[in-house]
Simulated assay, not measured.
Amino acid sequence: MRDFIFQQDLAPAHAAKSTKDWFTKKQLEVLAWPANSPDLNVIENLWAIVKWKIRDRKPTTLDQLKQNISTAWEAVSAETCDKLVKSMPWRLQAVIQAKGAATKY
């Protein structure tokens, strides 16, 4: 038995039959995600942090862009990740209070 549930939104690539088949084949449980729900996945916050860290850089090549992203990603602390994960109960409560509408998260 696995001790996790995979979370993803309903982006077209995530909802594709081939994607669903892959999860079924691997016997991975996927969290049911209602349409038009706020995306509470903390990865979105992590991407925002990375974007913020590279906002003033002006890469001129794809390799420079990749390096900037990699450097910014590696600079995100474990504490930041832990804080985001621990914020999930508040995120979920905010969505419940907003009756599924957008929240500050």
Score class of each variant (00 low, 15 high):
residue 84 L to F: 06
residue 60 T to R: 12
residue 31 L to G: 08
residue 7 Q to F: 14
residue 42 V to G: 13
residue 72 A to M: 04
residue 36 N to A: 10
residue 47 W to R: 06
residue 29 E to H: 15
residue 23 F to G: 03
residue 63 D to Y: 11
residue 96 I to G: 06
residue 15 A to V: 13
residue 48 A to Y: 08
residue 98 A to D: 04
residue 90 W to Q: 13
residue 80 T to D: 15
residue 90 W to F: 10
residue 91 R to K: 08
residue 59 P to D: 05
residue 3 D to A: 15
residue 24 T to Y: 11
residue 1 M to K: 14
residue 90 W to L: 10
residue 70 S to P: 04
residue 5 I to W: 11
residue 102 A to H: 07
residue 5 I to M: 13
residue 33 W to L: 05
residue 28 L to G: 08
residue 59 P to G: 03
residue 68 N to H: 14
residue 10 L to F: 14
residue 66 K to G: 06
residue 54 I to N: 02
residue 12 P to F: 05
residue 65 L to W: 00
residue 16 A to N: 06
residue 4 F to R: 06
residue 85 V to D: 07
residue 36 N to C: 11
residue 72 A to F: 01
residue 61 T to D: 14
residue 41 N to C: 09
residue 7 Q to P: 02
residue 56 D to E: 13
residue 18 S to V: 11
residue 25 K to H: 09
residue 31 L to K: 08
residue 77 S to F: 04
residue 81 C to T: 09
residue 33 W to A: 01
residue 81 C to Q: 04
residue 23 F to E: 01
residue 94 A to S: 06
residue 45 N to E: 09
residue 38 P to W: 00
residue 93 Q to Y: 04
residue 62 L to E: 14
residue 14 H to V: 06
residue 68 N to V: 07
residue 19 T to S: 11
residue 14 H to L: 09
residue 32 A to Q: 14
residue 12 P to W: 02
residue 68 N to E: 12
residue 51 K to V: 03
residue 8 Q to V: 05
residue 94 A to E: 00
residue 94 A to T: 00
residue 30 V to L: 04
residue 26 K to V: 00
residue 73 W to T: 07
residue 20 K to H: 14
residue 10 L to Q: 13
residue 102 A to D: 07
residue 54 I to T: 05
residue 6 F to V: 09
residue 10 L to T: 12
residue 101 A to E: 10
residue 53 K to C: 02
residue 49 I to W: 06
residue 51 K to Y: 04
residue 36 N to Q: 15
residue 18 S to C: 12
residue 84 L to V: 01
residue 13 A to F: 10
residue 37 S to F: 00
residue 91 R to I: 00
residue 5 I to R: 08
residue 47 W to L: 05
residue 93 Q to E: 15
residue 53 K to P: 02
residue 62 L to F: 12
residue 35 A to I: 06
residue 9 D to I: 00
residue 48 A to N: 14
residue 17 K to W: 13
residue 80 T to F: 11
residue 2 R to A: 08
residue 7 Q to L: 12
residue 28 L to T: 12
residue 2 R to L: 07
residue 85 V to H: 13
residue 94 A to C: 03
residue 99 K to V: 01
residue 74 E to L: 10
residue 47 W to T: 02
residue 28 L to F: 08
residue 1 M to S: 13
residue 19 T to F: 01
residue 70 S to T: 13
residue 58 K to L: 11
residue 88 M to A: 15
residue 14 H to G: 03
residue 99 K to Q: 13
residue 50 V to I: 10
residue 104 K to M: 07
residue 50 V to G: 01
residue 77 S to Q: 08
residue 30 V to H: 02
residue 84 L to Y: 02
residue 42 V to C: 14
residue 23 F to N: 04
residue 84 L to I: 02
residue 103 T to G: 01
residue 47 W to A: 06
residue 42 V to I: 13
residue 23 F to A: 07
residue 52 W to K: 15
residue 20 K to Y: 01
residue 67 Q to M: 12
residue 55 R to I: 07
residue 62 L to K: 11
residue 26 K to R: 11
residue 66 K to W: 11
residue 29 E to G: 15
residue 69 I to S: 03
residue 89 P to F: 00
residue 21 D to M: 08
residue 29 E to M: 14
residue 57 R to N: 15
residue 70 S to C: 09
residue 49 I to C: 08
residue 105 Y to A: 01
